[in-house]
Design a protein around this nucleic acid. Structure first.
Lengths: 373, 373
DNA sequence: CTGTTAGCGCATTCAT
DNA sequence: ATGAATGCGCTAACAG
């Protein structure tokens, strides 16, 4: 017969289709379809058994593409990630995956690698694959390139960053609260000069919010009791030259502060690692993990392994190496961010018509050695 | 007319189809299809212009699903990643993406989060979406669950790990060479006790190879001049209790070595951070970054910030924090691994019938403070 | 309960 | 050079 001998599955040259199964089971395609969609109550046990057998024999797997084409939904959602290199993104992803899993969705993950052009390309590609919705954590998307998405197009929810001009659900860290939390921590620790270091804003709303909140907290402090001073430094990590320039400036500024207080060892500071005479009074507040890493590497190069005794460091984001390096951080509820994003998206896919919602989740301060005096 | 007024694209409730475009352009669907497939030579400039206009007006985007259904290939490939948390994976991914981009493929990234069950699920899901091939970097897939794949099924290429019983292309680090390289480095540095620390083998061939190469290098050394001793420690990172137990054992062993040479402070070793009297003669060789991080964290907890003066650490994989922590590593050519994997896969998708090939790429030793004496 | 029919959006013969 | 017809694999009315 045409039945495949049990021991030797000669690797089907062509995947079986629903028609094959129908023939094999001696019935119509409809019944097969019904079986696939779990409409068991409407199938005689006898038929059902035959179908089951046929499916097994043919190792049949329904073609999702075809199903999608027919019913108009393919259970695919797009997940646009600006930078997978950032542990934050990976963690969010885990939440997304878990939620998708739970809701029967399949996330199509697109990694734009910090390239705005890539983001555009992927967004368009996702559209082309007719994803039912997208979760966007992008660097440079503008309202226009997201036009097909969001509004009248496919549902979208933003992660971490708002997109100007686009009304869509958003879920992310409560940036104001987080930056305030961090700033106050540094103030309480008695640091007198605090630099908030952040990447160029591009279109990333969260970066702006964090800076603003930092400024706000600094001002509030000055109003009360403080004399601490806050500064902002923009660091374009994508541009090595710019980074070097900016860090050199930062170094000079730090030297000025130090010399003004203890020894006058300004200039290029020849690894003053072993002179903890002048307790650190300057702190760096990194807006996210990549920035923090860049700063830490620089500080280590400049002050040696004991750089922590010279300048304090605090970072939003809590990468796994923070513990190892002993860096105080503000951990984001990444997993939950991802999970909620999918939930929001799902509601809209299912037709919910609510206004755009914002879901701001709180960060958690994790104090380590880098900010203790 | 039904033409949409230029200024107000009221957000198409339903995406335009090829039929819409045909109607809009006043022609048949065939011509549209030809236009989409770049068969320009066969279209009158006049018609071509009309089509272009219609497409623009309707913001038409061909439905990839439908195309795929028709022509039997959807340009989708699956990329199964065991653990995105491991920077190695993300880096490989970048290579994969670049190659896909160049070849007109769309990678469907699946993150199994170190769960064998997930791997099975995703593999089956990919099959269901009729991907044209898969790149597999999995933890526990067996030949059987990969049966539909590989052999007679869809093309597959393995990354980093071989799958027993499955004949498929493989690309990854030259593990033997890399482990040998690392071992010899430690030997040259004069370390006398070296522990190779690795996660449970599961079905991961690369882990076995690394251990073997380590043993081999140690034996070779003993044969010549050495008296250094090599040990192996299996660390199940997924099981906190096991980790604790194993590390405790390691601690005792290290203490034994130390006491045998200088002071006899065995036992629980109360943070001997400030007794650099006994130069480190023991080294830990981590089989990959997650293991290295685990070890580093433990050492730091036990010996304090100066743990590096007590025991050396070397790791395969070169995560970004290695530089910060000053850990010697063997960097894998991750990007290239990903790129090559896609190239291999593409060849097979295009019908190449070569035997299974192995592509072993060399690792690069990056010496940092953690292994200098 | 079960089978027949008619498309989903597109690429492809095959005519014209 | 162009269009009409057919079918990819599947679901969703409609009949029986």
């Amino acid at each position: 017969m045409s039945t495949t001998p049990p021991g030797t599955p000669p690797a089907a040259p062509r995947r079986a289709t629903i028609t094959d199964v129908a023939r094999e089971a001696g019935t119509g395609k409809t019944s097969i379809s019904r079986y696939l969609n779990g409409e068991m109550s409407v199938l005689s046990p006898e038929l059902r058994a035959r179908i089951e057998a046929a499916i097994a024999r043919l190792d049949y797997q329904p073609n999702q593409m075809a199903r999608g084409l027919k019913r108009g939904r393919n259970r695919l959602i797009g997940m646009l990630v600006a930078d997978l290199t950032n542990p934050y993104s990976v963690e969010v992803l885990q939440g997304v995956e878990a939620a998708c899993h739970a809701l029967g969705l399949m996330p199509l993950i697109c990694h734009a690698a910090n390239e705005v052009e890539m983001e555009r390309r992927y967004l368009q590609l996702l559209t082309t694959y007719r994803v039912e919705g997208v979760i966007v954590n992008a660097l440079g998307v503008r309202e226009e390139t997201l036009r097909p998405v969001g509004g009248g197009g496919i549902p979208a929810v933003l992660v971490d960053r708002q997109v100007e001009g686009l009304v869509a659900d958003m879920v992310g860290l409560d940036n104001r609260a987080a930056a305030g939390l961090g700033t106050r921590h540094l103030l309480e620790q008695g640091f007198e000069h605090i630099w908030f270091v952040v990447q160029p804003f591009e279109r990333v709303s969260s970066r702006q919010l964090r800076v603003q909140a930092f400024d706000h907290a600094m001002r509030a402090h000055r109003g009360v009791s403080g004399h601490a001073r806050g500064h902002t430094l923009v660091l374009n990590l994508a541009d090595a030259a710019d980074v070097e320039r900016s860090l050199a400036g930062l170094d000079r500024a730090i030297d000025a502060v130090s010399s003004g207080a203890s020894d006058g060892s300004g200039g290029r500071g020849e690894r003053g690692a072993d002179t903890p005479g002048a307790p650190a009074r300057v702190a760096l507040f990194a807006a996210n993990a990549p920035v923090a890493l860049c700063l830490a590497l620089h500080l280590k190069a400049r002050y040696g392994a004991h750089w922590q005794t010279r300048v304090a460091l605090l970072s939003i984001d809590d990468p796994d190496w923070a513990e190892l390096a002993g860096i105080t951080t503000i951990r984001q509820p990444t997993y939950e961010i991802g999970y909620r994003a999918v939930e929001f998206l799902y509601e809209r896919i299912e037709g919910a018509q609510t206004d755009a919602r914002d879901c701001l989740l709180a960060g958690e301060l994790i104090v380590r050695a880098s900010t203790s005096r």
